[in-house]
């Protein structure tokens, strides 16, 4: 069962099928493998052309690993990553070699979380933003200069900044530079791994606006990874929730926030502090710690923390189902529980 159908008629740009990534745990002098971290454990979803799919979950649930598998910065253990190229040819990114990937790189780009680590400190903005252009064949310097100037203007920076080094810029400005670099090759899919998490609130709003505007203008498709639910809700068309390496729920944003079907999603939403002192603080519904992906619980991974867990949950792992079209849940009782929220 996969999250492949959509109420929309849009075509999927990316289809992820049964994606797994296990990191070996080694020990001893001879680096013997003693176990596996199941960082991504059977994840399937689609990303439609022109939409923003938000990916949320707690720290360590496998968001970064999933997105890096798509970019092939990490080699998946198994599964398919089907990407539809410009000419409608469908390729499985998971199977390609380094050399075969090279021509595809321009079509899938990434925006990073850390505005300080993502730019090469020894290169000027021109070299940083122009690097993808250069290696993709734009060898004429004058042409590259024009294009970098355009890109900088596009993200709201002055083209005169081109000859400055990254250390001259603030976090928010660097994030814009990173966005300019990601857009330099005219990608169709942009994977943004926590692009606003390291930014201050006032700057965060600027960058979110920029991303929304760029998407509208350039018809980009975003996979937007974040742990801040308000941010994800603001920017996404659909939201996927991960827990211990698994996809537990995926639905259109409005549906997910008003009528979540997975107990974890609802608990996660209740934990978000609302910036209004008049709204009374709700009781803490999610207790305990996230289990280790090296040693996940039996049955439903969420059962030790779930308010509704039954004996069945302890032994039988629920499958990802689609109780209503476009709404995918991994819970035995998805149809029965009423988790309607105030949102």
């Amino acid at each position: 069962m996969t999250a492949s159908h959509s109420v929309d008629t849009k075509q999927p740009l990316l289809q992820i099928r049964d994606l797994r990534k296990f990191f070996p745990i080694t020990a001893g002098v001879f680096n013997k493998t003693v176990g596996h971290v199941r960082a991504v454990d059977d994840v399937s979803f689609d990303v439609f052309e022109g939409e923003t799919l938000g990916l949320v979950g707690e720290s360590g649930c496998g968001k970064t690993t999933t997105s890096r598998c798509i970019l092939r910065a990490v080699d998946p253990t198994s599964g398919q990553i089907l990407f539809r190229r410009k000419n409608d040819e469908i390729v499985d990114l998971a199977k390609l070699t380094r050399e075969e990937l090279q021509p595809l790189r321009a079509e899938i780009q990434m925006i990073f979380q850390d505005p300080f680590g993502s730019l090469n400190p020894r290169m000027t903005l021109f070299d940083n933003v122009g690097e993808p252009l250069l290696v993709n064949g734009m060898t004429n310097r004058a042409e590259r200069t024009d294009r970098v100037a355009d890109l900088l203007k596009l993200v709201g920076l002055r083209p005169e900044f081109m000859h400055r080094f990254p250390h001259a810029f603030s976090g928010g400005q660097r994030q814009r530079i990173g966005i300019a670099r990601a857009l330099s090759t005219n990608p169709r899919l942009v994977v943004a791994d926590e692009p606003v998490s390291a930014l201050d609130v006032s700057v965060q709003a600027q960058v979110l606006n920029l991303l929304l505007e760029l998407q509208k203008r350039l018809g980009l498709t975003f996979l937007f990874v974040a742990h801040d639910l308000s941010v994800v809700r603001h920017i996404s068309d659909r939201v996927a929730v991960m827990y211990v390496g698994q996809l537990v729920e995926l639905a259109p944003t409005k549906t997910l926030f008003s009528r979540p079907r997975h107990p974890y999603t609802s608990a996660l939403m209740r934990a978000v502090p609302v910036p209004d002192p008049r709204i009374p603080v709700g009781e803490v519904t999610l207790k305990g710690e996230v289990p280790s992906p090296a040693n996940p619980p039996t049955g439903c991974y969420f059962h030790p923390r779930c308010r509704f867990a039954t004996d069945r949950c302890k032994v039988e792992a629920p499958a990802l189902r689609e109780p209503t079209p476009g709404h995918f849940v991994r819970c035995h009782f998805a149809d029965e529980l009423d988790l309607t929220t105030a949102f």
């Binding site: 090279q102 990434m110 990073f112 993502s118 090469n120 993808p132 290696v135 993709n136 670099r181």
Partner: peptide
């Protein structure tokens, strides 16, 4: 930034 260079091709 090294990953970025890799992704740039």
């Amino acid at each position: 930034f090294v990953l970025a260079a890799e992704l740039a091709g």
